[in-house]
Simulated assay, not measured.
Amino acid sequence: MTILNRTKEVAKLRGISLTETAIKAGLAEKSIYSWDRSTPKADNLQKVADVLHVSTDYLLGRTDEMNLAQSNNELSGFDEEIMMAFDGKPIPDEDKEKLLEFARFLKSQRGR
């Protein structure tokens, strides 16, 4: 699977388009589409990986673990900007906020 295909797959899972992904990463709107013809710069790949909450190794096809840090339980908190989806469909913004409020509440109850 190519870098472009992996990126498309994860963006779809997160409920956002490649154009939205590029914009959130601070790249030109259609820049990710060129990844089938040329390898992206390391810093651009990292920006996209950060937006999609996966490792660059996953996008490069070096691992099938989407986020190595998370799979190794190295993340102690949560990222409030994470893209949320349920059953392959994006969660509405108002529901995302409710879920984040609940997550913040749980985190505060645990004293973290």
Rank of each mutant, 00 (worst) to 15 (best):
residue 2 T to G: 10
residue 2 T to M: 04
residue 3 I to P: 00
residue 4 L to M: 02
residue 4 L to A: 06
residue 5 N to K: 15
residue 7 T to N: 03
residue 7 T to F: 08
residue 9 E to A: 14
residue 10 V to I: 15
residue 12 K to L: 12
residue 13 L to E: 15
residue 13 L to Q: 15
residue 14 R to S: 08
residue 20 E to Y: 01
residue 21 T to E: 04
residue 21 T to R: 09
residue 24 K to I: 07
residue 25 A to E: 00
residue 26 G to Y: 02
residue 27 L to E: 00
residue 27 L to R: 07
residue 28 A to M: 01
residue 28 A to E: 08
residue 28 A to H: 08
residue 29 E to P: 11
residue 29 E to Q: 15
residue 30 K to F: 10
residue 30 K to L: 12
residue 31 S to E: 06
residue 32 I to W: 06
residue 32 I to G: 06
residue 33 Y to V: 08
residue 33 Y to L: 14
residue 35 W to T: 04
residue 35 W to I: 03
residue 37 R to Y: 13
residue 37 R to G: 06
residue 37 R to K: 15
residue 39 T to R: 14
residue 40 P to Y: 07
residue 40 P to N: 03
residue 41 K to D: 05
residue 41 K to L: 08
residue 41 K to A: 10
residue 43 D to K: 11
residue 43 D to A: 09
residue 43 D to Y: 11
residue 46 Q to I: 12
residue 47 K to W: 04
residue 48 V to L: 01
residue 49 A to P: 01
residue 49 A to S: 02
residue 49 A to L: 02
residue 52 L to R: 02
residue 54 V to C: 14
residue 55 S to I: 00
residue 57 D to I: 05
residue 58 Y to H: 03
residue 60 L to N: 07
residue 63 T to D: 06
residue 63 T to N: 02
residue 64 D to K: 10
residue 64 D to S: 12
residue 64 D to R: 09
residue 64 D to H: 11
residue 65 E to N: 09
residue 66 M to N: 03
residue 66 M to R: 11
residue 68 L to N: 04
residue 70 Q to L: 11
residue 71 S to H: 13
residue 74 E to A: 13
residue 76 S to V: 15
residue 76 S to L: 13
residue 77 G to K: 05
residue 80 E to I: 10
residue 81 E to R: 15
residue 82 I to K: 13
residue 84 M to R: 13
residue 84 M to Y: 11
residue 85 A to W: 10
residue 89 K to D: 05
residue 89 K to E: 12
residue 89 K to G: 04
residue 91 I to Q: 02
residue 94 E to G: 01
residue 94 E to F: 14
residue 97 E to I: 12
residue 97 E to T: 12
residue 99 L to S: 07
residue 103 A to P: 03
residue 103 A to Q: 10
residue 104 R to P: 01
residue 107 K to E: 11
residue 108 S to M: 01
residue 108 S to P: 04
residue 108 S to T: 11
residue 109 Q to F: 07
residue 109 Q to G: 07
residue 110 R to W: 07
residue 110 R to T: 03
residue 110 R to P: 00
residue 112 R to L: 14
